[in-house]
């Protein structure tokens, strides 16, 4: 069509403003539905990282005296978009006695890619089945060239009346720093 010389001439004669206006109005008309959609889609970004609440996990009595870590599910009411479950595992922690009245909590998720690490009783260390990261009893990287960018994530722990309470939080995988999500 543009090859038609008459029409091409007519186009160039058309006021510049009208063409700009046509494009502008067209774009503006398209914006509200797009903006509304994108805004709904990005809604999850507007929620900041939760600080985590203190949750009772177990009692000191449940931890072996010899400092062997034991895995515990962290149960709490959990909200998944439109459903709420009153008693649902949020994740898991490894608890380990560090003294008669003290204990330490490690997030059971590998900081590398988010797999659940397991405690290997033969080698007495934590091992990730996905990419073979290994961590010592305190959760520190225990191999050269570990796939994991950081040590296992420690969690804030409080002992009240020999009950173990934990501030459970998830952290971003793969980053060198421990960033709550």
């Amino acid at each position: 069509m543009l090859n038609d010389p008459n029409q091409a001439n007519e186009l160039t004669r058309r006021p510049f403003l009208k063409r700009v206006l046509a494009l502008l109005l067209g774009t503006i008309a398209f914006l509200p539905p797009l903006a509304a959609g994108v805004s709904a889609f990005l809604h999850p970004l507007r929620r900041g990282a939760g600080a985590g609440t203190l949750l009772r996990v177990t009692t000191l009595a449940a931890l072996p005296e010899d400092g062997t870590p034991r895995r515990f599910p962290v149960m709490a009411s959990r909200r998944n978009a439109w459903t709420r479950s009153p008693h649902e595992p949020l994740g898991a922690v490894f608890l380990r006695r560090t003294g008669p009245e003290t204990a330490e909590a490690l997030h059971a998720v590998c900081p590398h890619a988010g797999c659940q690490v397991v405690f290997a009783s033969e080698t007495r260390d934590f091992q990730c089945p996905c990419h073979k990261s290994s961590f010592d009893l305190a959760g520190r990287i225990s191999q050269a060239n570990s796939p994991s960018p950081r040590d296992m994530d420690t969690l804030e722990l409080e002992i009240r009346d020999r009950e173990i309470w934990i501030r459970f939080q998830n952290f971003r995988s793969g980053s060198v720093r421990k960033i709550p999500v």
């Binding site: 990005l42 970004l45 978009a81 998830n170 999500v181």
Partner: peptide, 15 residues
């Protein structure tokens, strides 16, 4: 940001 938008929240779930 893209990761969180795709997951639709802090954890994998309904969204």
């Amino acid at each position: 940001a893209l990761q969180q938008a795709l997951i639709g929240g802090p954890e994998v779930g309904h969204l």
